[in-house]
Design a protein around this nucleic acid. Structure first.
Lengths: 264, 264
DNA sequence: AACCATCTATAACATAGGTTAAAGGGAGAG
DNA sequence: CTCTCCCTTTAACCTATGTTATAGATGGTT
């Protein structure tokens, strides 16, 4: 392991931000300090409970989780999947109480730190703050796209769309290969993510299998024809904002942080 | 009009941020500079088109708009309503291209400024940056709640929920009084916001009228029994995060910005 | 190896909500 | 004043998806 640490931090969060911009040593140090305090949790553990008072900010280092909201009678909607490198309730930690829960799907490794560090980050590292804002905006875009799915796509389209989305997002962090990935999720959770019943998800997956677009073997999903699957799901990757930081941001951020601010 | 300007800036954005924390003169000046460049547009004008390259950041000063996403075949989902004081694509302006459109519902007054000002804001005004991050997180929370509605609430519940949400949000900016407000929206747009057909929205509104929970007169909606309407919609205002900034944030932000940063 | 719990799979039936069609408002243009 | 155009309203019918029920898989535990 003698890759220059300067370019590939060992932390998922650092790696993520690195893909937006070149980090200074100071920034890198601050980030790796944030991820110093690591915890392991089993599958099906609550990282955050709806209604709970926020205490810590967390970064998912390894494993999967879901962000979900529930109605009093138990109906539940999965808002998003939390993948390695994702931050759990970054801004939300600025709230008093959680309006959603976060539950692990697999054993996970998470780093925790105090919300005060966020304030510190805003004050000392404006470039990191902007980069995190950018990545927060990406999450919002993903949720808005899921709203479009649930509101306006048919069951078949939604399901196809979600599979393509996960394939893309996992490929980005090296967790999918040749259209094949592990989906550590029961059909109940899939149903809750897509606003469908568990029976209908089952029917829909079967249709996708019958058409030959996907193969399912336990938790392993293989996408046979991603072009056609994307087209069934009317998938347009625009919303994932996969391109690095836009030139504008990159340019503004690539200068060293102006700590003595000469701006008039 | 001789209220001390220091406490009630005349700009919607400034007023919004003021409710989170005490602003310094410098911050106030910066904000009002941002809102200097004002444009008026008629109803049904596109403030932003899906797929367009971002050019400017906008703040809604007066009027309504919708944020919406469309599928290639024309099906459309309204993601959120943009009310006075809301920022249009604040972080999103850091993206290359828009993954959603914004269209006015009424004649509007918007302020526009260059995205560069956002970078400047992050560098010079960390407290404003954090406050804007907080308000961005609130928008995400609203979208997540709408996802829960569309995914898991029945038509009646969703509709009730949206009406209560709008009532609360409008009350907050003084645009609703005694449960009465103007909803400058066709039933088609309501349908697109709730993931329903236009016919079914009509049926559902009728049911709410028949039960006596609301009254509709043109664009004016009167909520007769907001307790019961909230209960039908299983409305829990937690997600609106109406409380001022949490103590933690408030405390951290209320100090003057530490421009010379003595933090180790 | 047998047991239990949890998932998946399918069938049969029920219904919320979609679609199509057509008849009224209402408001701005001429 | 009346002609449009766009919106709302309602009815009749249809279908995608939900519900209930049951049987198989699967995998961990004793």
């Amino acid at each position: 392991m003698n890759r220059p640490l300067a370019y590939t931090p060992s932390t998922p969060l650092g790696r993520k931000l690195c893909s937006y911009m070149v980090l200074t040593d100071e920034e890198r140090n601050f980030l790796s300090e944030l991820e110093r305090n690591v915890t392991r949790l089993p599958a099906r553990a609550d990282l955050l409970q709806q209604g709970e008072r926020y205490g810590t900010v967390r970064v998912m280092r390894d494993g999967w989780a879901i962000r979900h909201k529930a109605l009093p009678d138990g109906r539940r909607q999965v808002v998003n999947f939390v993948l390695p490198g994702d931050i759990i309730g970054f801004y939300c930690n600025l709230f008093e109480t959680a309006d959603h829960g976060v539950t692990t799907l697999t054993p996970v490794e998470v780093a925790s730190f105090s919300p005060d560090r966020i304030i510190e980050l805003f004050k000392r590292f404006p470039r990191l703050a902007a980069a995190l804002a950018w990545s927060g905006a990406k999450e919002e875009a993903i949720i808005a796209e899921r709203l479009l799915s649930v509101g306006r796509r048919t069951a078949l389209e939604r399901t196809a769309h979600l599979i393509v989305e996960l394939l893309k997002r996992l490929s980005l962090v090296g967790l999918a290969d040749g259209g094949r990935f592990i989906l550590p999720v029961t059909q109940e959770i899939l149903a809750d993510a897509l606003g469908l019943s568990i029976v209908h998800i089952n029917r829909t997956l079967r249709r996708l299998r019958d058409i030959g677009l996907i193969e399912v073997a336990g938790q392993q999903i293989t996408v046979n024809d991603d072009k056609q699957l994307s087209s069934v799901g009317q998938f347009d990757e625009l919303y994932l904002h996969l391109i690095r930081a836009p030139k504008r941001l990159e340019h503004a951020l690539e200068q060293a942080p102006d700590r003595n601010r000469a701006i008039p």
